[in-house]
Amino acid sequence: MTLRATIVFIAIALVFVGMHSPAVAHSGNGYGAGFIGGFTHPILGWDHVAAMVAVGLWGTFLGTPAIWILPVVFPLVMALGAVAGIVGIPVLAVETGIALSAVVLGMMIVFAVKPPLWLAAVIVGVFAIFHGYAHGTELPATASAFAYALGFVVSTGLLHLLGIAFGILVKWPAGRIAVRGAGGLISLVGIAFLTGLG
């Protein structure tokens, strides 16, 4: 392509770019909006993110079978919490419970606490109720319920996976320090939300 042709091509391309109108592919309702709403809901709340990642991290720290039992227990119990929120069963101090989940789970990682598996599952399960409750009560009325539920469960699972992926570093001494440090950071985030600073 000659220089002149290139200039003409760029000029035409710029004209087209300048003339574009905004793409309105998504109307804001339906499956797409529902999925995105559900997917972003856990991600946009730092207290949720901290706790979800902490579940994965702690699971890796505890080793097999906790590495998969905790991420299996969490969504199932979280759904029970969501049911409570949807049906209207009152759950006290939801925000406190969510913030506390980050503090407690973070502390567990910092101090490398290894309780019996059933106790770890109970701790995670109790906190999952608060998270699920928050998701259940904040379901947007216009969204597709199925897509919203799908989005938020997938998003939660991916956050666990993120924690597990980072937690694999515990195999190395330096990684162990990094993971415990991450636990400390998660605890601090929880404390910030607990004290109203977050």
Partner: peptide, 22 residues
């Protein structure tokens, strides 16, 4: 399976409360 179970339970609850856009 846990994820799908969670979705099913939520859908069950939503369906029992009010008719929604499924």
């Amino acid at each position: 399976a846990a994820w799908l179970g969670a979705i099913s339970l939520m859908m069950l609850a939503l369906g029992s409360v009010e008719p929604t856009t499924l």
